[in-house]
Nucleic acid binder design. Structure first.
Length: 300
DNA sequence: AGCCAGGCTGACG
DNA sequence: CGTCAGCATGGC
């Protein structure tokens, strides 16, 4: 990986094991949208609107100042050796089936407050609808950015969400999560330092996050993995539950505790590995056919 | 038309 | 400690 800034463009070359389209649509981040050229992605990273375009092993990010290069390189996790991680997956007989579909996945490093709120919204929800709620939240109180002939919105500051009412949040479709979002925003606006969780142990950081209303083990793990550098945080949702059952337990029923133990054995990058498993599970629509089979026949 | 979704809360054992 | 009904909403 090497990079240069030419004009206002950050050009990063030698980017291997990276598929921008997969990373933007896999459900780790909810705000990347397809540009009208049909291949570039528009997004807002810590308040900065950017256009990201991948051409083979080259990633271009526009615009970018000298000062922002490190921020963007970190956001896309470009310094990490994913060849090493994919090698680890390929050499594990239980996980190798995931790689053809999931190769090129990377775990982005998002802003902690954005990750926390968007994953509170994610609870018992689907990715498309989560994206819709997040979009309406940003339109409601995020800073407007005119860029590339389009109107984008930054993710709202904690204080901006804290100014809303529960009814406002219900209005944008947040449903029963509305009070959770509001309570969490108020606490962060009030000075809670999410960055301080970066240096805590995984278990301490999880425990701290689970004190927020609407945050259980899964949302805590997502926040830690997707924004706070805890690469061993291993979120277990319904997709991962099905995948682990099939890949690790020969389709026998397995409890959360057993899954956690199996995940720990995957090592310090287990959370990143989880993202490959998640992508695979969704790609092959894991479990859907089996569930359809046991469904009783419809009456005439 | 139902079932499902990147689950969590609060109540109750 | 573990279990579990109930939960808003809309995609498919």
């Amino acid at each position: 990986m090497e990079y240069e800034i030419s004009g206002n463009m950050l050009v990063i070359g030698g980017v291997k094991n990276f598929d921008l389209a997969k990373c933007c649509s896999c459900g780790q981040a909810f705000r990347w949208k397809l540009y009208r050229d049909g291949e570039s992605r528009l997004g807002v990273i810590r308040g900065r609107p950017v256009l990201a375009k991948q051409i083979g092993e080259t990633l271009k990010i526009y615009p970018c100042s000298e000062a922002d290069a490190a921020l963007f390189i970190n956001y896309f996790d470009l310094k990490r050796d994913y060849a090493e991680i994919e090698k680890l997956i390929l050499s594990d007989d239980r996980l190798s089936v995931c790689l053809p579909a999931a190769s090129g996945i990377r775990v982005f490093n998002q802003e902690p407050f954005e990750a926390l709120i968007t994953f509170i919204i994610s609870a018992n929800n689907n990715i498309k609808r989560i994206a819709g709620i997040v979009d309406r939240l940003c339109r409601r109180c995020g800073e407007e950015k005119k860029f590339m002939g389009e109107t984008l919105y930054a993710f709202p500051k904690p204080s901006k969400i804290a100014e809303l009412s529960v009814d406002d949040l219900v209005e944008i479709g947040a449903g029963y999560r509305a009070p959770y979002i509001l309570d969490t925003a108020k606490r962060v606006a009030d000075g809670y330092d999410l960055e301080s969780l970066r240096t805590l142990s995984l278990s301490e950081a999880r425990k701290a996050l689970m004190n927020f209303l609407g945050v259980g083990p899964k949302v805590a793990d997502c926040t830690l993995l997707f924004s706070l550098g805890h690469t061993d945080a291993f979120p277990i949702d319904v997709w991962i539950g099905r995948a682990m059952k099939e890949l690790f337990f020969e389709s026998n029923p397995a409890g959360r505790a057993e899954m956690r133990k199996a995940a720990e054995d995957l090592g310090k990058f287990s959370g990143i590995v989880q993202q490959y498993i998640f992508y695979y599970a969704r790609e092959v629509n894991l479990g859907k056919t089996e569930r359809a089979k046991i469904k009783p026949l419809k009456k005439p």
